[in-house]
């Protein structure tokens, strides 16, 4: 009995030794003496999911505002919006938040080139986005050293970037409805409120103007939400909204989204 198990273990160990030596030499051969590797072929089956047809699929893109920075509960307007929508409809609402803090319009253009970004936008029924706050404020430096010529130049680049973003989204998905959430002025209670507010208003106005040239692009203003008592709605960094602020924005976006239309579109 004892000798038998010795024999079995010896045999297994011998077989295993041979296997592992083969594996090791295979590794060495594969990793060090690699003949020019056959180029990795893109797999032909880029899947086209059809599972999403009944559910509503929302893609959120943009910067820290969409990410929810500043909300102590970590939700951000996207989650508040989602909660509102879920109580509004019996349909399944799925959401994918692809926003990245600190993104400018230029970085968003680059992000939109990724295959997976495009795939998700293609499947989306609704896209919500915020972009431009980092273009304009640049972490607060723009408005504290206020120069009109400087801002005009920033806005010009931003608008041409935005046009490309809108165009890309439309090209990827001709059906989806896009909600672009506008800027508020976090510095409205500081000195210079007039000039900063002017700049933000003009920025918003030009964005809305551009959105109007695309079909099913909705510009969602937030300036008025934060106009009075802005400090009640701002987080500790005096720049991002807090949960109350995000709740306001979320409610507003949710109130604009109408499910009847989405249903018609899908049928």
């Amino acid at each position: 009995m004892k000798l038998n198990s010795v024999k079995i273990i010896t045999f297994l160990s011998l077989v295993a030794t041979v296997m592992w030596v083969v594996g090791l030499s295979f590794t060495i051969n594969d990793q060090f003496f690699n003949n020019p590797p056959p180029p990795v072929e893109k797999s032909a089956t880029i899947s086209t999911d059809t599972t999403q047809t009944k559910d509503v699929f929302i893609v959120a893109i943009g910067d820290s505002l969409t990410r929810g920075t500043g909300d102590s509960t970590g939700k951000g307007y996207v989650q508040y919006m989602l909660n509102d929508l879920k109580s509004k409809t019996k349909q399944n609402v799925n959401l994918s938040n692809l926003a990245i803090s600190g993104y400018t319009s230029q970085q968003l253009i680059n992000q939109l080139k990724q295959t997976e970004m495009q795939r998700q936008i293609r499947q989306s029924d609704i896209v919500v986005m915020t972009i431009g706050a980092n273009d304009l404020f640049q972490g607060g430096t723009t408005l504290t050293n206020f120069k009109q010529s400087n801002i005009d130049a920033l806005e010009k680049t931003y608008l041409s970037n935005l046009k490309e973003i809108y165009g890309t989204i439309r090209k990827i998905n001709p059906q989806t409805t896009v909600y672009h959430i506008g800027l508020y002025n976090p510095f409205i209670e500081l000195s210079d409120a007039k000039t900063t507010s002017n700049a933000v208003r003009k920025w918003n106005f030009d964005t809305a103007d551009l959105a109007a040239t695309f079909e099913k692009f909705v510009f969602v203003p937030t300036f008025d939400l934060f106009q009075l008592n802005v400090n009640n709605y701002l987080a500790g960094d005096k720049f991002h909204p807090n949960s109350m602020g995000y709740q306001l924005v979320g409610d507003r976006v949710a109130s604009l989204i109408n499910f009847e239309k989405e249903n018609e579109k899908n049928e």
């Binding site: 030794t17 592992w20 083969v22 594996g23 090791l24 030499s25 295979f26 594969d30």
Partner: peptide, 9 residues
Amino acid sequence: LMELGLAWF
């Protein structure tokens, strides 16, 4: 097989 070979090593 490669990984197990390395683990054996």
